[in-house]
Design a binder for these strands. Structure first.
Length: 476
DNA sequence: GCGATCAGAT
DNA sequence: CACATCTGATCGC
């Protein structure tokens, strides 16, 4: 639905040139009382995006003044607009458009979306600096002389590879190792920055702080020469510990670029600690009933290592992972992890497998080569959110799915949509954690970095921000 | 034939 | 519903 709407929106605007521009090239909106339903919806989207831009954006003037010519390109980027002849000339933030070739009979809307996605969204650029954050999939970004990477997840490093040549990359030392190892980026571009240390880059004081997300993930604190402070959270899970970071206690943050993944009260989940205790409890129970159980933890690239580390610690068993994953895990340089990895699957009952393997059929096949070493499988799929509203904070309501001797916590079942729940081990902030963090920091402005492409969710988030910042006391 | 990129699936 | 890929198709060379 949303996507279809977006397509139409982009397509419609590009084709019908329904937008008016003011003398600066900014879209201008006229109150239009025509009662055409479809048009109205489009108008709403445009208006709230514009509202967001002017009302809750930072003082964008610094961006506009330092790079006057970027104004229009910027704005076009925001709206996902490329208007014919104009766009080529003003397209300062994106590589030249690719020529379209409608090889099949498909609508050009698909092609338009491709182009639109090629330009760097405004919220990835840090105003008043030549910096971008997590913006590698837009080619060479005009005016950008330092590319920051918050953490090593695909949706943030996408575009980085051995052919990267658009400028220096700044990130944490752990992330730097992964970028070099896994993506084969030329090391001369990679600039590791120690956490909790002030680095001066292009005259801006930059400090990386632990983000409580995946290994190597960092919050980035920028202090400009004019005294403005910006905090970019990348992806993070807000924690009480952060309220003691000296930089956050001692300096006012003017603009907060916020990971708003779960910025909605419907997202409730337990603390990491509670989930780890739960997983350990379930595992112990299972092993008590069936000592010959293989315990499997699903994982993507990096993140959620604590789930298998907790089991390893509690049971005193080693962790098996295949060679490529071991290489990545070793690169973290965490003694408690490196020291507990093993290279043979039959050396331990605790295995880490790709998330895609956590299916009944695949696990059954996986078990075969181990003969009668194992009589059952217990698998955990740590997901961000519990999926079921009824579960929320109550871990005891989680029900696994079983087939034969295989039990999966977090197997998605359409049939049991309302009672199923994964293991809600989240590396993003819950709604209440976000609120507490924002009310601690009390920034002048907040720029959400997730769920921004939908007008309704943007509007909703902004109203939460207003609410949080308008009241003096913490609410519970 | 190959890597890069894309839409769609999971 | 959303995360963080993964898969399979297509593109460009």
């Amino acid at each position: 639905m949303t996507d279809a709407g977006l397509y139409e929106f982009e397509y419609g605007d590009c084709e019908s040139s329904g937008l008016l521009h003011d003398e600066n090239g900014f879209p201008s909106f006229q109150d239009n009382d025509d009662d055409d339903d479809d048009d109205e919806e489009e108008e709403e989207k445009e208006e709230s995006f514009a509202d967001d831009f002017y009302r809750c954006g930072t003082d964008w003037s610094c961006l506009l003044q330092t790079e006057r010519k970027l104004k229009q390109a910027n704005l076009f980027d925001m709206w996902g607009l490329k208007s014919n002849s104009e766009s080529e000339a003003n397209c300062l933030f994106s590589p030249p458009m690719k020529k379209l070739k409608a090889s099949n009979g498909k609508s050009t809307a698909t092609h338009l979306k491709k182009i639109v996605d090629r330009s760097c969204p405004f919220y990835k650029k840090i105003p008043g600096t030549p910096f971008t954050v997590d913006a590698f999939r837009y080619g060479s970004i005009k005016g950008c002389s330092a590319y920051f990477l918050t953490h090593f997840h695909y949706d943030h490093y996408g575009g980085l590879g051995k052919r990267w040549s658009h400028g220096p990359i700044y990130c944490s030392p752990l992330t730097a190792r992964l970028v070099r190892m896994c993506l084969l980026v030329n090391p001369s571009y990679i600039h590791p920055l120690e956490l909790n240390t002030e680095h001066v880059i292009d005259g801006v004081k930059v400090t990386l702080l632990e983000a409580n997300h995946c290994p190597g993930a960092a919050l980035i604190h920028f202090r400009l020469q004019d005294g403005q402070c910006y905090l970019h959270t990348g992806d993070f899970r807000a924690s009480r510990l952060m309220q003691s970071y000296p930089l956050l206690v001692n300096h006012r943050v003017n603009v907060l670029y916020l990971d708003t993944t779960y910025c909605n009260p419907k997202y409730k989940f337990p603390s990491k600690e509670d989930v780890l205790n739960y997983v350990v409890r379930v595992t112990k129970n299972c092993l008590k009933k069936q000592p010959k159980t293989l315990v499997v933890v699903g994982a993507y690239s990096i993140g959620k290592e604590s789930v298998f580390l907790a089991i390893s610690k509690a049971l005193g068993v080693k962790i098996y992972a295949n060679a490529s994953r071991r290489r990545v895990l070793q690169s973290f340089d965490w003694p408690e992890l490196s020291g507990n990895l093993c290279t043979q699957g039959n050396d331990t009952l605790l295995h880490v497998l790709p998330m895609s393997s956590l299916k009944f059929e695949t696990l059954k096949d996986y078990l075969k080569p181990y003969g009668n070493q194992y009589a059952a499988v217990l698998a955990f799929r740590p997901t961000g959110w519990t999926y079921s509203e009824t579960v929320g904070n109550q871990l005891d309501l989680i029900r696994p799915l079983s087939r034969g001797n295989i039990t999966i916590y977090g197997k998605i079942s359409k049939a049991r949509i309302n009672i199923f729940s994964g293991v809600p081990y989240s590396e993003h902030s819950s709604f209440t954690e976000l609120r507490e963090f924002v009310q601690f920091l009390r920034p002048d402005k907040i720029i959400p970095t997730v769920n921004v492409w939908n007008a309704a969710s943007r509007e909703k988030m902004q109203s939460f921000f207003r609410e949080w910042l308008s009241c003096k006391k913490l609410m519970i």
